[in-house]
Amino acid sequence: MPKKRTTRAFLTRAESTKPAASTDWNKLRSLSDEQIRARRAGDPNFPRIDWKSVDVELVEPISKTHVSIRLDSDIVDFFKSKGKGYQTRINQVLRSYVDHEEKAG
């Protein structure tokens, strides 16, 4: 039986709700745990998760294999032009192809 694959999506910096300002660590250290909890409760960027109603699945990462592969230079240039993580994107395209072929039989 093949292992179930899970797709992970990562927020880009533009999609992230992380505030632009840096943390004032000295101010944070001066707050009590109760003060921190009270501030966190009113923070729209803090996720409110009811862990009792969430179905959590432990997903083991698929191991990677180091390979050397010869690709057409225009293909490599295309993926590199999209920025950091081009090898991951190539892997995602290959993963999509494999998933499609497995479903097709």
Rank of each mutant, 00 (worst) to 15 (best):
P2L: 01
K3R: 11
K3G: 08
K3V: 09
R5M: 10
R5F: 10
R5T: 14
T7A: 11
L11K: 15
L11R: 12
T12Y: 02
T12C: 05
A14S: 12
E15R: 07
S16A: 10
T17D: 12
K18G: 02
A20T: 12
A20R: 08
A20S: 11
S22T: 13
T23L: 11
D24E: 06
N26W: 01
K27L: 13
K27F: 11
K27V: 10
L28P: 00
S30R: 04
S30Q: 04
E34M: 05
E34Q: 11
I36A: 04
I36K: 02
A38Q: 12
A38F: 06
R40W: 04
R40L: 15
A41R: 12
G42N: 07
P44V: 03
P44T: 02
N45E: 01
F46C: 05
F46P: 00
P47M: 02
P47G: 01
P47V: 00
I49N: 04
D50M: 02
K52R: 13
D55E: 12
E57W: 00
E57D: 09
V59F: 01
P61R: 01
S63M: 06
K64P: 00
H66I: 14
I69K: 04
R70H: 10
L71W: 07
D72V: 09
D72H: 10
I75E: 05
D77S: 10
D77T: 05
D77W: 00
F78I: 01
F79D: 02
F79H: 03
K84N: 12
Q87Y: 05
T88S: 15
R89Y: 02
Q92Y: 06
L94I: 15
L94D: 03
L94T: 14
L94E: 04
H100V: 03
E101V: 14
E102L: 15
E102W: 00
A104F: 06
